[in-house]
Design a protein around this nucleic acid. Structure first.
Lengths: 333, 333
DNA sequence: GCTTGTCACTCTCACCCCGCGAGTGCTAAT
DNA sequence: ATTAGCACTCGCGGGGTGAGAGTGACAAGC
């Protein structure tokens, strides 16, 4: 597609633009790239790059800025950065030897990530699925509504409000709790549900069975979909976009759990970069750098940051990757 | 301090400024207030109000804008607004008959409040204290770290990671769990802790007792301070302040749990308004309208919104108050 | 003594004009 | 294919200007 020199010209242009935010002139590329050619040559190359749609001019007689396609090409050809040892050790220290409640750990991870990257950060919690259940409780809330509390083997606590069709008596509820607790013990939720459904219907009062089934179904339904979403570092928004309309739109995105998920949920097993056009978000200058993490037996999730397309990709990708690894290891233990 | 007409002039000025955001001229006050005097008279009054420090001029030949003192006088003398029935019924519908997990309810309440008020909203969770415990579990996490899960009578679930000084065996942990569960059953945490400490040391292995005491102390320490903080509607910030520096500062405030608490924590049993100078936040144009809520036996908390000083106080106060009442009732059941 | 009509004065804001400088595209030469 | 040179384009910032909004002051009226 692009010969070697033109690739270098585009890289220099993107990096210069990322650094300065100003349209980049042929002379600036000359200096940054160190190519031993004249500015006129570079101007010719720029004209070619423009015809390919990688760069554009804000107006005649101005320098060039990258188009989304230009960024895409750059990102796909960029080598990852090396992190300073100070940064690495900060990540390491963060995940070493500190035991925190899961939700707190995830929330604080957004803090770390956004601190290091200087971009707002997103962390999606690891799934529940595949984990066995350590403890289970039913708490009556009101009438036909009960709260099911499940503690997983790794100490995760999940709460679900379940509305039953009928109002159980206290003893029925206790029996159902007992039944489910037994079925769930050291089992995954889906396995336990089968157990419950296979129970001998003649030995257990039907009403109890019905309660247990209702709760079991409710659990199974949410199982796996309880990946909590955490967002941190939103204060950076104002500095990054410098534009109230953009800040408003992005705050709106980050406020709604569903759209946050949509931003970074992706089935890639490596760090990935998504740019405005590729995300289902209209007309916002947006790039999302995300990476999966693997918490060993305890599932895994995804973390990422978002920023304007004019973003330090090489550094950011590396940071997101490393923090993801740290988080995975920390959870995996 | 102020005679009747000057009070009205100030009120009209503040309301006009809240509505338009422009410096208010004597003529504008004339029209809005309906006072049957000439604009010259109002100009004289304005000069007087200025000497009292209630209003100021951005520059010589411009209208007046309220000073913080002017706002203070205004809110202290403002009568609360009436809400449209549509608004009232929205609040009512929100809290009627829907059973949600507590954390979800509180989070969604910030959504309701910010939707109605058009300002970012804060909800502080009701305390745990005073509630009896319904279920209790200890889950070993790793080595000397255990997770204590407490379910309160009203179905609230609290998780605490406790680091013990020694590593208990499985059976010791089970015994300690049993011990604490028994002690806690239908008791408040503080009452239970006394029970545990009063246990006959000769009947129970010392190691078990020590574990139980560690956990109990950890619980007691966090008991009452676990008032979660929820923030919603931050997307409004961009529209409200129209100024990147302000948006940045306030996002920063809202990001940190401690500062959010500081914004609305206050020991007033009525709706209250705090303005920039009165809050420990420097140089931000900020007003906080907050109100307590009472969840009956289950404690209570505080909710509020924040906005620029140029804020529709009469309407906002009423909305915050009503949503607070709704939340209190909903939790009290 | 408070209120009012009048009027000169002040200050901002929006607009326009214009010159500078950066940076390009083109062309002709290598 | 590359380069030097050059004419051309266009945005940006500074300064000038006129209109309009609003005030303060003053003298007259109730």
């Amino acid at each position: 597609m692009l010969d070697d020199r033109r690739t270098k010209v585009l890289q220099a242009l993107v990096e210069e633009y990322i650094a300065t935010g100003q349209p980049v002139s042929s002379n600036a590329i000359l200096e940054r790239s160190g190519l031993g050619v004249s500015s006129a040559t570079i101007r010719n190359d720029l004209a070619r790059l423009e015809s390919y749609g990688f760069v554009e001019q804000p107006h005649t007689s101005a320098g060039r800025i990258p188009t989304p396609q230009g960024y895409r090409f750059y990102v796909d050809h960029a080598s990852p950065a090396r992190l300073r040892t100070a940064t690495r050790s900060r990540i390491e220290a963060f995940f070493t030897d500190v035991h925190r409640e899961l939700s707190r750990l995830l929330k604080e991870t957004t803090g770390l990530l956004s601190d290091l990257s200087h971009y707002p950060a997103i962390v999606i919690g690891p799934g529940f699925s595949g984990e066995s259940v350590r403890a289970f409780h039913l708490v009556p809330l009101a009438g036909d509504v009960v709260l099911a509390v499940t503690v997983s083997a790794s100490g995760r606590v999940s709460q679900n409000v379940v509305r039953l069709r009928t109002q159980p008596t206290e003893s029925e509820l206790a029996e159902a709790e007992d039944l489910l607790a037994r079925a769930l013990e050291h089992e995954t939720i889906s396995a336990a549900l089968e157990k419950v459904n296979a129970l001998p219907a003649d030995l257990i009062p039907e009403r109890v069975l019905r309660v247990a089934a209702s709760v079991g179904n409710a659990l199974a339904r949410v199982d796996g979909s309880i990946r909590e979403v955490y967002v941190g570092g939103t204060a950076q928004l104002a500095e990054l976009w410098q534009d109230l309309a953009h800040v408003h739109t992005i705050l709106g995105l980050l406020e709604e759990e569903g759209s946050v998920r949509r931003l970074i949920d992706e089935a890639s097993d490596r760090p990935s970069v998504r740019l405005s056009g590729e995300i289902d978000v209209d007309n916002v200058d947006l790039a999302v750098v995300s990476s999966p993490y693997d918490a060993g037996g305890h599932g895994g999730g995804r973390i990422g940051v978002l920023g304007p397309m004019r973003m330090d990709y090489r550094r950011t990708i590396k940071i997101v990757e490393e923090v993801g690894e740290g988080l995975g290891e920390s959870l995996g233990r």
